[in-house]
C-alpha cells in the first residue's frame, strides 16, 4: 500500500445485479420502496422501469477498494452523489463496473476515487473513499 501513486488503478470489478439482488437489498436495508421491485409502480411514477437502490450502488461501489485495503475498518469517510439511475432489466439484470484509483495520498490516509458505470455512463458523482493507511 505504501508504493502506490496518485492515479494508479488499485482495483476493478464488475457486478451483475439482478432483480433478486434488489429484493435482497430491500430486505436487509428496510427500504421497501416498490420502484425497486415493481415495474408497474416504477412506470406509474414516470420511470423507465425498476431501479437499483442508490444505496445498493453505493454499497457495492466500495467493495473493490476495500478488497484492496484488506480491512473494512480502515474506511474513514465515504461519500457519493447519485447522478444517474441503474435500470435493472427483469431478465438481463444490470452490469455495473467499478474502477478504484488513488486520488490523493497524505501522511496517514489516502483517498480512493471510484468510477462507477452502467451502460457506459457514470452513475455516481464525486464517489470518494478516504482510508487510513
Amino acid at each position: 500500500m505504501t508504493n502506490v501513486n496518485v492515479g494508479d488503478t488499485v482495483a476493478q470489478r464488475e457486478f451483475q445485479l439482478s432483480r433478486d439482488s434488489l429484493v435482497r437489498y430491500a430486505g436487509t436495508s428496510g427500504d421497501f420502496n416498490p420502484i425497486h421491485y415493481r415495474d408497474d409502480v416504477a412506470k406509474s411514477v414516470g420511470l423507465p422501469g425498476v431501479l437499483a437502490h442508490g444505496m445498493l450502488t453505493m454499497g457495492i461501489a466500495a467493495q473493490p477498494a476495500i478488497e484492496w485495503l484488506g480491512d473494512p475498518g480502515r474506511v474513514l469517510d465515504y461519500q457519493v452523489r447519485f447522478t444517474r439511475p441503474v435500470l435493472v432489466d427483469p431478465e438481463r439484470g444490470a452490469l455495473v463496473t467499478v474502477v478504484a484509483k488513488i486520488g490523493a495520498i497524505e501522511d496517514e490516509r489516502l483517498r480512493i476515487d471510484l468510477t462507477v458505470t452502467f451502460n457506459d455512463e457514470t452513475v455516481l458523482g464525486k464517489a470518494q473513499l478516504w482510508a487510513r493507511i
Binding site: F15, S21, Y25, T28, L56, G59, I60, Q63, E67, P72
Partner: peptide, 17 residues
C-alpha cells in the same frame, strides 16, 4: 447475522465482514 446479511447484500467478499 444482520452484519453478515448486509455484507452479502452489498456483494462483500471480505472475511472481516
Amino acid at each position: 447475522e444482520k452484519v453478515r446479511e448486509f455484507a452479502n447484500a452489498v456483494f462483500s467478499q471480505n472475511p472481516i465482514n
